[in-house]
Each structure stands twice: as structure tokens, then as C-alpha cells.
Amino acid sequence: MITVDGLTHTFGETTAVDDVSLTIDDGEWVVLAGPNGSGKTTLVRHFNALLEPDAGTVRVNGTPAADQPVAARTSVGMVFQSPRDGFVGATIGADVAFGPENLGLDHDEIDRRVDDALAAVNLEGRHDERIDSLSGGEQARVAIAAAVAMEPDHLVLDEPFTGLDWPAQRSVLEHLDDRHAAGMSIIVVSHELRDLLDRADRVIGLHAGSVRFDLPPDAARDRLPEIDVRPPP
């Protein structure tokens, strides 16, 4: 469970996140909607202690993320926008293993996690392929596998569909459905809600760093123009 309480984050003069409070339960599928610059990315980076709050707290499973970053980062898996810039290994296997290695797990457990994570995104047995030789869709799946290998309770995806063609988007969505069915909570940050509304339990609308609404998808749909997000057809 992620609990955000009165979170404020400023960059110099700009307030990116302004007194935000919200809760995300285990197993939920939540969409964080908002236009560019609404503070979505800044907000979710607090979920695993990649940023420190100027005010307020973020608790992951009851523990303040800023005090226990390792606990937050193993409970909240993060998939970044444009995964190409977030890979830390040259090959699929090396990249996915990086997180589990940092957790100090033994080699058998690392191998098991990498194999399981790759199987979860249909990339089993492709450990030695170079990441640069993969398509955008495959790279997106490797990025998901890398987060899944930490065996998190929550999976946060920041604009996961940018630059992906329709089959690749569909494939990513299907893998997210699988993770959700396996009990993970899924948090998707996006300004493009096609295919997301009918999956989500809740839509949280963000505008200028503040939560404008937190509603079930049907009710949220009508209020999307209010936060400058185009309602899906």
C-alpha cells in the first residue's frame, strides 16, 4: 500500500507537486492522468524515494519511503519513460539481473528471478541478446521485466506507450493484465487514456501539481477535459 500525505515538491521557484494526498491499495489498477507538466512524474518518483519531499510524507506499506529507500524501491517497481535511457546492462540478462544483484541475493535466486521475469514478458531464453538490437516494444518489455525481477508489490509505469506502435502497446497491456492478475497493483502515468479506462479501478486527475479528482473510470471520463486530457473515444 502506498500512502501519500500532504506531499509537496518544488524545483527552484516551481511547485511541481502541491499538497497531494492519496492512497493506493494492494492489487489496485490506478491511472494517474494529467497533461505534460502536471507533476505526474515528480509524484511517482516519490513512491520509491527517488526524490525527497519538501513537505509531507510518502509511506510504502506503512514505512516512510525517505527513511527506508531500499524497502520502498523493492516494493515499488518503476518503469521509466523511454526505457532506452534506463537500461544499465548491455544484454537482456545483464540488465534484468542488475536489481536482484544489488539486493545481495545468491546466484541461484538471481537466476530464478531473471528467468521468471523474462517469462512474464515472453522473453524467456533471450538473456544474451543485446538490448540495442531489440525493437521498441521488446525494449519496453525488458524494462518491465527489470522492474518485475525486484518482485515488487506495485508496478509504476511512466508514459509506457510513448513511441510504441499498436501491437507493441497491446502486448505491454496484456503483460500488465497478467501482473495485475498475479496480485500486483498497477499504476500507469499517462496523458493518453485509450485502453486504460476500462482496465482501471480508479483514475486520479492531476493538474498543476494538485489532485483535481479521484474517481472510478466512468465518472472520471467526463472530467478529463478539466485537466486538459482528451477523453478516449
Binding site: F80, S82, G86, F87, V88, G99, N102, M150
Partner: peptide, 23 residues
């Protein structure tokens, strides 16, 4: 710019001083 992204990505994956070393 890429180095900013990389730094965030490394931290998100618990980049540690004492990892399991390669076999």
C-alpha cells in the same frame, strides 16, 4: 541529459556498494 536518466534508473534498482558479484 542521458546521465540524469541513468542516475535515476540506477537508484531505482537499488544500486548498492555491496551487490552479489558476478560468478
Amino acid at each position: 541529459r542521458r546521465s540524469d536518466q541513468l542516475a535515476i534508473a540506477l537508484q531505482a534498482r537499488c544500486f548498492a556498494w555491496n551487490p552479489t558479484l558476478p560468478r
